[in-house]
Simulated scan of single mutants.
Amino acid sequence: MTTLSTPFPLGSSGAFPVPVESPSHRTSSRLGRLAIHLMLGIACLIVVIFLVFHAYVAWVLTHPAVAPLASNPMLAKNLAYSEVTFASADNKTWLEGWWIPSTDSRKTIVLSHGYGANREESWVPMYDLADLLHGMSYNVLMFDYGFASKNHSIPATGGRIESQQLLGAIQFARRQGSDELVVWGFSMGAGTALQAALHSEPIDAMILDSIFIPDDNTLYHNIRNQINIPKYPSVSLIRFFFPFMSGTRLELIPSTQIQETAFDFPILLIHGTADDKAPAYLSENVAKAQKNELSDLWVVPDAIHEMIFRTHPEEYVERTTKFLDRVTQTQAVQLAQL
């Protein structure tokens, strides 16, 4: 009888032996699983850090650092004033400011400061402007938006809630007997003025310097000035976190509407071509939509954000005062026709 040999030796029971994993193989397998878990952990950590970073950006945008008031109209320009407090138009916010009266005047200018500043906004410079206007027999209202308030602080909302605060300031000025009321805004304070103008509160004219209107492009442009991050998904994430930090959504800001609306009062728009915070096309778009014959646009070559009063003081004063005089003359004609 021929015996068939097997290529593998049989165990005592006649079965093939079970392969035994070597210690070195078990170690490498364990290290492989550990490496996978480690990579997954690192990936999750990166995602968490990415999300937390954008939540922090949203928080910073809604809680700008604002310096405390450094002076007052009397100390700065020897202007008599009174401390005033008034409610926003929706009665959800208390605002504080300075009322600088002009003897027997029924003309008032409400100064609307920009983001990250208070009513002083020294780089404009606001005290010089208040002094100029008081010399032209205007009452002047300087006030702090909620994000600049030390006693009634609320988050910044890109003009969404601030427009109700500005309407409250306008209503306060009207209660002081103001027949002619002009809003003079800077940066986001100018964009806020246009948002406020979409409501029914009567305004006689506006001067808007370096308009800033929050949208995806301007938001990303300003963030990119500070840190190099991708537009997508960064802007989408900031929009997502914004309501948690501010109580309102960026989508509710009518950025397109205010650039396309023909307002029923004259607007003088001022913007610099070298503005690295608010592109000049924002003022150009608003100007293009206007129909009032007194409306005008002054684009200043190489001028930067909100610094036109400082860099071109004589022309700035000439253009703005001429515009205000024309508004007053038009008001006088209209009143005479009543």
Results as ranks from 00 to 15, higher is better:
His199Ile: 08
His199Phe: 10
Ser200Phe: 06
Glu201Thr: 15
Pro202Met: 08
Pro202Ile: 08
Ile203Gln: 02
Asp204Trp: 05
Ala205His: 02
Met206Thr: 04
Met206Arg: 05
Met206Asn: 07
Ile207Thr: 08
Leu208Tyr: 06
Asp209Phe: 14
Phe212Gly: 05
Phe212His: 10
Pro214Tyr: 11
Asn217Pro: 12
Leu219His: 07
Leu219Ala: 09
Tyr220Ile: 01
Tyr220Asp: 00
His221Gly: 04
Ile227Asp: 08
Ile229Ala: 13
Tyr232Lys: 12
Val235His: 10
Val235Thr: 14
Ser236Phe: 12
Ser236Arg: 14
Arg239Trp: 15
Phe240Tyr: 15
Phe240Asn: 14
Phe241Cys: 13
Phe241Val: 12
Phe242Ile: 13
Phe242Gln: 14
Pro243Gln: 13
Phe244Arg: 14
Met245Trp: 10
Ser246Trp: 13
Arg249Cys: 12
Leu250Phe: 15
Leu250Ala: 13
Leu252Asn: 15
Leu252Val: 14
Ile253Ala: 14
Ile253Lys: 11
Pro254Gly: 09
Ser255Gln: 11
Thr256Asp: 14
Gln257Tyr: 11
Ile258Pro: 11
Glu260Cys: 08
Glu260Ala: 11
Asp264Tyr: 00
Asp264Ala: 04
Asp264Gly: 03
Asp264Glu: 03
Phe265Tyr: 03
Pro266Phe: 00
Ile267Ala: 00
Ile270Phe: 05
His271Gly: 03
His271Ser: 08
Gly272Phe: 02
Thr273Lys: 06
Ala274Lys: 08
Asp275Met: 06
Asp276Ala: 07
Lys277Cys: 12
Lys277His: 13
Ala280Glu: 03
Tyr281Gln: 02
Ser283Leu: 11
Ser283Gly: 11
Ser283Val: 05
Glu284Cys: 02
Asn285Thr: 08
Asn285Phe: 07
Asn285Ile: 01
Asn285Asp: 11
Ala289Val: 02
Lys291Phe: 02
Asn292Phe: 00
Leu294Glu: 02
Leu294Ala: 04
Trp298Ile: 04
Val300Cys: 04
Val300Asp: 00
Asp302Cys: 05
Asp302Glu: 12
Ala303Trp: 05
Ala303Leu: 05
Ile304Thr: 14
Ile304Glu: 11
His305Leu: 06
His305Asp: 02
Glu306Gln: 12
Met307His: 10
Ile308Arg: 00
Ile308Asp: 01
Phe309Trp: 11
Phe309Glu: 10
Thr311Cys: 03
His312Lys: 09
Glu314Ser: 05
Glu314Thr: 06
Tyr316Pro: 07
Tyr316Trp: 15
Glu318Met: 04
Glu318His: 07
Thr321Leu: 13
